[in-house]
């Protein structure tokens, strides 16, 4: 489902919502080429924003701007009061960011990697829940081997395992190509998990070449001329 006005490079939403996060007139160029301009959108709770676009359209850069990592994008991002004290920089405790580089340290075991992600969230999670999350993503029996000895798909699962933790503080997932390197059943499982999260009022901003079918999905196309 798509709505909004297309301005040649990106969609501008017809109405502005005071949601979880709101982007206004984002502009980005790289190597003297404009990736997107006049890009505005908002995300509300329970919504899945699916950012689509060809390779090199600036999807990853856009996600990095949303979470506050990148300074190469002009324009404003405003966060709701729940998510940020100053409206500018989001509170790290409130969202998971699955980046292009998945933050899986190869010399650490899946369990240690997951525990470190949780620690950075300043969250107190019982270790049995960590084991359970790793079990859910299909890493049973691999919890204590170095992540470097796992396959690419398994390493992605390590990165995804944090999404199966149910931390009450986390109300937003920002996912950069979450389906990469996953097999068919894992893709289906993750899809279901994302939809379940949205059904409980969580929001998701994701990039993917893989289509999602859910009533809460809204698509945002960038970097394509009609």
């Amino acid at each position: 489902m798509t709505f909004g006005r297309y301005n040649g490079r990106g969609f501008i939403l017809g109405r502005y919502m005071q949601g979880i996060v709101q982007a206004d007139k984002l502009y980005c160029e790289r190597d003297d080429r404009v990736l997107f301009e006049q890009l505005s959108f908002a995300v509300e709770s329970g919504e899945i924003l699916h950012i689509k676009g060809p390779n090199g359209a600036g999807k990853t850069t856009l996600l990095r701007r949303i979470v506050g990592l990148s300074w190469v994008v002009d324009g404003t991002i405003t966060w709701g009061a729940d998510f940020s004290a100053d409206g500018q920089q989001p509170d790290g405790q409130r969202f998971w960011y699955l980046a292009h580089r998945p933050a899986v340290t190869l010399q650490l075991t899946p369990l240690e990697n997951l525990a470190f992600s949780v620690a950075l969230h300043n969250a107190d999670v019982d270790e049995s829940l960590l084991w359970q999350a790793l079990d859910t993503v299909g890493l049973r029996g691999y919890e204590d081997v170095p992540s470097g000895s796992l396959s690419a798909g398994q390493q992605r699962r390590v990165a995804l395992s944090k999404l199966y933790l149910d931390l009450p503080d986390v109300r937003l997932w920002v996912l950069d190509e979450p389906f990469t390197a996953l097999d068919v059943s894992a893709v289906a499982q993750l899809e279901k998990r994302i939809e379940a999260f949205a059904d409980t009022g969580g929001s998701v901003i994701m990039t993917s070449h893989h289509g999602l079918n859910h009533t809460a999905v809204r698509e945002l196309q960038i970097g394509v001329r009609p």
Binding site: V67, Y97, H100, R101, P102, A103, V104, T105, L120, H121
Partner: peptide, 22 residues
Amino acid sequence: RHDFEDGSLEQMLLSSVPAQLL
């Protein structure tokens, strides 16, 4: 360098713990 290459560094900068302490 290692943390930059595997993406852990980004997560540290986004953490709710002050990055200066990390």
